[in-house]
Design a protein around this nucleic acid. Structure first.
Lengths: 217, 217
DNA sequence: TCGAGTGATTGAACGATGTTCAAGAATAAA
DNA sequence: TTTATTCTTGAACATCGTTCAATCACTCGA
């Protein structure tokens, strides 16, 4: 009866699964994610529909639920892709700047603004999306968020030799969150947001103010 | 044929409408808003359902669409109530602080953090809610957002005598947005957010850094 | 007071949506 | 080839917001 039944470990590792099945499943998942990226980029997170994604990916509606767990999980995959691209953009911005920590942090903030403007809907989806209450974000996706603060830490450490470890990490998070807040309210077109044409200047002014303040701490 | 038909102006002013009808309509709207406030406070914005709201308010499902335009419009009314309470809280925080502008801005930020924590879901709804694409926020609701930056302007003007008018307003928006960003990412429990127990301290540190930086501008 | 006219209320119906599932097809192991 | 297992399919289901024809309540002039 259990002759051909894989146990849980084998399922997870997938070592006994046929190559054809495995490959097709992976390819379908890839296609679904690519289509979802396109849909969110074109019509926003709320414009992502299970029926449209599967139709465009060339599979039945139900196939989505074997390729990925959920429509929510599909969004997480899309967000992971976006975070990877954002991470690359921030890394490039940092590398391209002068070595002084002030210049690096200003370049990072400018890079963040540029990426958000150039990838509005995909960037918005990163923070619009909410899992249903009680559902915890899977670990593989949590880790992908690290790119948002990774590049901040080194230049911030140079400016704040008194900070290290947890305290430094915390200040990096706060710095990112402050810049992010200005960008988000502006690009959402909120009443209290800064007009988009002034966004870059205001973010630069904010970063400079934070840096001068930090310097004297 | 048109003997009893009110024209548009009369409709808007409502002077020819019977008192009973008018009163009932207003009372129903009030009840719906109150129930919606309770539902969002209890289960979040996503937990607001037309059928539950109307059932709890004691009216039929369809009545919601004569009392308010939309479920979205009902949320706007809820948000306006929340903004009014938030405005009062910020005003009180400002009044209760010392006269020095630094103390006032720190008190405002602390008041914002306290309100957000004490009214999590209602506060979240202020920024979670999005109107369908292409639908513009009505003017009456836009105005209610002013409370978010009103109290910031005076103390900020004292610190930055070089700023006035549009430039001052813009810097007030940026200051709010920066603080808001830190609070939002933290209370959402995002990976890059500051742990909630450190939120108050981090926000205070951010405000102090921005103030010192602004001082030297 | 009364009757016609107007708008409000009702709840069934509609369309859209995410998700499930039984049946059939495809694949892998024996 | 045979058999067990998994994948695929698309109809069905549950749950939304919203509409609408029928009914009701109210207002106002006569």
């Amino acid at each position: 009866m259990f002759k051909n039944k894989m146990n849980d470990v084998q399922k997870i590792i997938g070592c006994e699964m046929g190559n054809k099945t495995e490959a097709k499943r992976a390819e379908l998942r890839e296609r679904l994610i690519a289509v979802a990226v396109a849909q969110i980029a074109a019509r926003g997170l709320a414009g992502l529909k299970a029926r449209e994604v599967t139709a465009e990916a060339g599979c039945a509606l139900g196939a989505l639920y074997t390729a990925v767990q959920d429509l929510d999980t599909l969004v997480l995959h899309v967000n992971s892709r976006t975070l990877a691209r954002l991470g690359a953009a921030l890394h490039a911005a940092c590398e391209g700047a002068a070595a002084e920590p002030e210049a690096r942090l200003l370049a990072l903030a400018a890079g963040y603004v540029a990426f958000a403007r150039a990838n509005r809907r995909l960037w918005s989806a990163l923070f619009e999306h909410r899992l249903p209450e009680g559902v915890e974000t899977p670990e593989w996706h949590k880790r992908d968020h690290a790119v948002l603060i990774e590049e901040i830490i080194a230049p911030l450490a140079q400016l704040r030799a008194d900070l290290a470890g947890e305290a430094l990490l915390m200040r990096a998070r706060t710095t990112f969150a402050a810049v992010h807040g200005v960008v988000q309210l502006s690009l959402q077109g909120r009443f209290v947001g800064v007009p988009e044409e002034d966004l870059a200047d205001e973010v630069a002014a904010l970063v400079r103010a934070m840096l001068r303040g930090a310097h004297l701490a």
